[in-house]
Amino acid sequence: MTVEISPQARDALEGWLAASRALKGSAEATLAAYRTDVVGFITFMTGHFAEPQGLAPLSRIETRDMRSWMAAVRADGAGARTMARKLSAVKAFYRWLAEREGFEPTAVLLARAPKFEKKLPRPLTEEAARDMIGAVEVQAGEGWIAARDVAVITLLWGCGLRISEALGLTGADLPMGQSLRILGKGGKERLVPLLPVARRAVEEYIAVCPFEMTAGDALFRGAKGGPLNPRLVRSATEKARAQLGLPSSATPHAFRHSFATHLLASGGDLRAIQELLGHASLSTTQAYTSVDSAHLMRVYAAAHPKGG
Rank of each mutant, 00 (worst) to 15 (best):
Y94R: 02
V108E: 08
P121N: 14
E189T: 01
L97Y: 13
A89D: 07
L183W: 07
W96P: 06
R74P: 00
G134N: 14
A111Q: 05
G77A: 15
M132A: 11
G141R: 09
K185L: 14
G187A: 14
K118W: 03
K91N: 05
R181T: 12
F93R: 12
K118Y: 03
A113W: 10
D76P: 01
P121W: 05
I182T: 11
A92P: 00
A107Q: 01
V73S: 05
M132E: 06
P193R: 03
E126A: 15
R112K: 12
R112Q: 14
Y94A: 01
K119I: 00
F103L: 12
D173T: 08
V108S: 02
I133H: 11
M176E: 02
G171V: 01
G143W: 05
M70V: 02
A107K: 00
K86A: 03
K115T: 15
L120K: 12
R112W: 02
M70C: 13
K119Q: 09
C159E: 02
I133K: 08
A98P: 01
G102H: 10
L167K: 03
G177D: 05
R95I: 00
K119G: 15
E189K: 04
I153N: 06
L87T: 04
L180A: 08
L109P: 03
L110N: 11
A128L: 05
G160D: 07
G141A: 13
R190H: 08
G177Q: 05
K118L: 07
R130A: 14
S88W: 00
L183V: 09
R95L: 03
R162L: 12
A98S: 15
D173P: 07
T82Y: 12
V150Y: 02
P105H: 04
L155N: 04
L156F: 12
E99N: 06
A111C: 12
V136S: 08
S164A: 15
G184K: 04
G184S: 04
L167G: 08
P121F: 10
R162I: 04
A113S: 15
I145R: 07
K185I: 11
Q178N: 10
G141H: 08
V152L: 04
A166Q: 05
L97R: 01
L161E: 10
A166D: 05
A140E: 09
P123N: 09
E117W: 00
E101Y: 00
R81P: 00
P121A: 15
I163R: 06
G134I: 01
V73A: 10
Y94H: 13
G160Q: 13
F93H: 09
A128R: 14
E189H: 06
K91T: 05
S88P: 04
G77M: 12
A128S: 14
A151N: 04
E117M: 02
D76I: 00
E127T: 07
T106V: 07
A72K: 05
T125A: 10
L155A: 08
T125I: 09
A92G: 15
T106K: 03
L169M: 12
A71E: 11
Y94G: 01
C159I: 01
L161Q: 12
F93D: 14
L87N: 06
E165G: 04
L110I: 08
L191R: 10
D149K: 06
T82K: 09
V108C: 10
L155S: 03
I163G: 13
A151R: 01
G187C: 03
G158L: 07
A84K: 02
A72S: 13
V150T: 11
L174W: 04
E104Q: 13
M132F: 05
P123F: 06
A135W: 03
W157Y: 15
M83E: 15
